[in-house]
Design a protein around this nucleic acid. Structure first.
Lengths: 215, 215
DNA sequence: GCGTGTGAACCTCTTCACAGCG
DNA sequence: CGCTGTGAAGAGGTTCACACGC
């Protein structure tokens, strides 16, 4: 049974997602039992961290042997809610938006794209990997139909806040943005960022630091 | 002058990247002076954190007024090494790879794409936003020519490790991967991940938790 | 008065080490 | 004997609160 013991950090949630990925892979490799050390090694963390993370939701392991792969995966998916993943919609049918849709969500554990939107009327009506590009005016209607959705925002810089406001108004409270502009959302709406440029900066910093040392 | 006082965390580096972004924006808005509170508000953190981050590299501010926008931006870029950003190459000319290149790196503070590679011979030779798609056999040659580069890996699941090994062998030690498979790199090579699926999992978790509470 | 820079307090997360169970 | 689950110790990061300089 899943029994939450105390407040769990986002770091733990992120790692649970990693564990799920490893377990899906282990499952396809025919493994039935996995130890905290195995999970730790593939995720490049300590085995104690793995055990702590899992133990904060219940006792999923068997002492002396380890964790049953299928049972643990089911439990983690229940914890994350990914046993019944929400539909994903994409806002912006530009380069990135279309590429994401064409790439699909295979291997993600059950997510799939349910709709694409763009405010450019020269794009609406066109198809992208089987999905019709819809006008932003249809947003609320479609979200009402789909229920709770996650929206991935891939609009150009400058209109991000506008897109966010429309989404929030349409009842969406889970957003993932590829834009680099700072965005505001009301309390209770979860907004996350994919920060490609920041990742580049971090890489630049570490390589410059390294070459400085070498001198 | 930039004087490092003690070990600085990656979290601080990430935030420096955010500050740089804010400062570029402030600059274009005609502001000359900015306070730690201003930066903190746009980045949604505390003003004390901003001051701590900046103070760990020197004294950039003026008491009573704040920070000079241009001077602070210059200093942060020098700290990150983005005053002279490394060339970026893309491995994999699939949907995501091509979309990244077509989107360009405007607004990133100076990065630009210098080469694209794909192992599929039906793609090599074709153009993508002005860049010729090159064969992986040319990798070492081009990297030697470009010097220290950052490689963005957008190859399909299954061949990620192969791509990484080739890159490392070619002398690249700064990698940013869009794949979801676990990858191994030797000591000294910096490998980071863009985890779209994990971000979806985190969003799913928080929306499911919220709807549970509401009941 | 205002905002920076900073020690100290606080808090959170990670690692250690071991009891306990299979 | 092996591996989990966990209190305790340790490390790291954030917030507080205030002295100091503009």
């Amino acid at each position: 049974m899943i029994t939450l013991k105390k407040r769990v950090s986002e770091k733990t949630i992120r790692r649970l997602s990693h564990y799920a990925r490893c377990l899906r892979y282990s499952g396809t490799q025919g493994r039935n039992i996995i130890t905290s050390r195995d999970l730790a090694d593939t995720c490049k963390i300590s085995s104690a961290a793995v055990r702590k993370d899992l133990a904060s939701y219940g006792e999923f392991g068997k002492q002396g042997s380890g964790y049953d792969v299928n049972r643990l995966l089911e439990n983690i998916e229940k914890i994350l809610g990914t046993d019944n993943p929400p539909p994903v919609i994409v806002i912006g049918a530009g380069n990135i938006g279309r590429a994401l849709i064409k790439s699909g969500l295979e291997g993600s554990g059950g997510y799939s794209y349910s709709a694409v939107f763009d405010c450019d009327s020269s794009k609406t009506g066109l198809m992208c990997a089987g999905l019709k590009i819809r006008s932003m005016t249809e947003l609320k209607e479609i979200i009402d139909e789909l229920g709770e959705v996650i929206a991935i925002i891939t609009v150009p810089s400058g209109v991000g806040q506008e897109a966010v406001d429309l989404l929030v108004k349409a009842g969406c409270n889970a957003l993932l943005s590829f834009t680099l502009e700072p965005l505001d959302v009301p309390e209770g709406v979860n907004l996350r960022f994919i920060e490609v440029f920041t990742e580049l900066d971090i890489l630049t910093h570490s390589m410059r630091k390294k070459s400085r040392k070498r001198k």
